[in-house]
């Protein structure tokens, strides 16, 4: 229902338009689809490099978020939920980070995503950063969990852009598994 994003000729257009969402898990409440959907708040959208920086400069760094909060950066038209049509057959790479690394890794990840560094066509859906008590987590969601060439390329690109050591904790999980 939102109008299309306008870009001036002087701006650097991105391959895709993106939407940033914020969510916070309510303590003590059982999560369900309705509450998860209601907890997702749209922060802003952008379709150019300049619009991205304009939004990003107003955000707190992930390391400053309170526990159980999340930023979701997804292509416009894809909601950051397993149930979205684009995500139903998909999955996500999960990278667990010790405290202190998340802000830098998140920035490097989204710059790679916006700059089309993953080189997997239309497969990328979005990225999520989750702040937890003893660790932080970043995830990259893609459309087709069964496309092993794509998931391998995403994994390798993640290792490269995040400078992860070989021992870093990385796990791929299909959304089907999460739904079950």
């Amino acid at each position: 229902s939102l109008p299309p994003i306008e870009i001036s000729p002087n701006e650097h257009k991105l391959q895709y338009a993106y939407a940033l969402w914020y969510s916070r898990r309510s303590s003590g409440k059982q999560p369900n689809i309705q509450s998860y959907d209601q907890n997702l708040k749209l922060v802003g959208r952008f379709a150019s490099v300049e619009q991205f920086w304009s939004l990003y400069s107003h955000l707190v760094r992930p390391s400053e978020l309170t526990t159980s909060t999340h930023f979701h950066l997804f292509k416009v038209g894809i909601k950051p939920m397993w149930e979205d049509e684009a995500n139903q057959k998909g999955g996500k790479w999960i990278v667990r980070l010790r405290k202190g690394l998340v802000s830098r890794c998140w920035e490097n990840l989204i710059l790679a995503m916006l700059g089309e560094q993953f080189m997997v066509g239309e497969e990328i859906c979005g990225a999520v950063v989750s702040i937890r008590f003893q660790e932080d987590v970043i995830c990259v969601w893609n459309k087709t969990a069964s496309d092993y060439a794509t998931t391998a390329r995403i994994r390798d690109t993640l290792r490269r852009v995040l400078h992860l050591p070989a021992s870093a904790s990385m796990e791929y999980k299909t959304h089907n598994e999460s739904l079950k």
Binding site: N10, H12, Q15, E50, W53, L111, L114
Partner: peptide, 21 residues
């Protein structure tokens, strides 16, 4: 088809451009 690809350094250089600000 063609894709719009940006290197990290290029994106970072636009962070403080007049249009971004």
């Amino acid at each position: 088809g063609t894709r719009i690809v940006y290197e990290r350094d290029f994106l970072m250089n636009l962070r403080n451009s007049p249009i971004s600000k």
